[in-house]
Nucleic acid binder design. Structure first.
Length: 262
DNA sequence: ATGGTTGTCTCACAA
């Protein structure tokens, strides 16, 4: 089974990118973030025509929003509220006799890495703490669980194009990296990207819009992650970042990440 | 310290 995660930055203006992802990557399951659409206006027909009749959505107007498209049926669908917010940042589906899959859109955290001054950063830290408490309480490590999505954090030095320049910026601060490491440990997760690409090498999934030619200059960050528990890690076969998606017409600032599980 | 760009029932705000 090939699983993809992709922050589309609005699903409705990115349908051509979804088409291209299906053509190039042939994923069985596609987890989307920042769909920016209410559930009633989600392009279900487009997904069905692409071969994904099974769809779980959790959206809201203009902001956030997650969805899971699947070629195969899933048994259950759950939406949990995190950090006391009703926002659309998490979906869980379960594939019978296979694994459970959690799609996350972690808060971006705003511009200032000071939780006293910046409530968005406080929200992000609280969200990560709550994910950690869940991962610990749920005793995941004996089960087949995958959590993936836009974690809005690049925890390792080579998860950004210039660690020294970026280490005080939201998304790559030592505090966030520490919290992500604690979450990884609490769930006993394997970081799939770094299972396949050693930490000595750059690995990016996001190139910002703001810097001109950020992709051509490779000013990238690794914000999108796939983490799996050890019983599921035994089934890992392949990992690929579809970097060329950043050069598609009218692209998202993120690119898809693909993982194959036997 | 600032600005750069993209998207949204746009002229403000989030990323």
């Amino acid at each position: 089974m090939r699983v993809a995660t992709y922050n589309v930055n609005s699903i409705r203006i990115r349908l051509h990118c979804l088409d291209q992802l299906v053509q190039d990557g042939q994923p069985d399951v596609i987890c989307l973030q920042e769909t920016k659409v209410t559930d009633d206006a989600f392009p279900y027909d487009h997904a069905a025509q692409l071969g994904y009749p099974h769809v779980a959505v959790r959206g809201e107007k203009s902001y956030n929003g997650v969805a899971i498209l699947s070629r195969h049926p899933f048994e259950a669908e759950e939406r949990w509220s995190w950090w006391g917010q009703g926002d659309s940042r998490h979906l869980k589906v379960t594939f019978r006799d296979a694994f459970e899959l959690h799609c996350f859109y972690v808060p971006s955290g705003g511009p200032d890495p000071d939780p006293e001054k910046n409530p968005k950063f406080a929200h992000k830290l609280g969200f990560l703490d709550e994910m950690t408490a869940w991962a610990r309480d749920a005793r995941l490590s004996g089960r087949k669980v995958a959590i993936l999505g836009d974690f809005n954090g690049a925890p390792l030095e080579n998860d950004v194009w210039n660690h020294k320049k970026i280490k005080r910026q939201v998304g790559h601060t030592p505090l966030e990296s520490e919290k992500m490491a604690t979450l990884l440990d609490a769930g006993g997760f394997v970081d799939v990207g770094r299972r396949f690409v050693p930490p000595e090498q750059f690995l990016f999934t996001w190139w910002g819009y703001r810097h001109p030619q950020s992709f051509q200059k490779n000013y990238g960050w690794r914000l999108d992650h796939v983490w799996v528990t050890p019983p599921l890690a035994d089934h890992l076969q392949h990992h690929q970042v579809l970097s060329h998606a950043r050069a598609w017409e009218r692209p998202s600032d993120h690119v898809p990440v693909l993982v194959d599980l036997k």
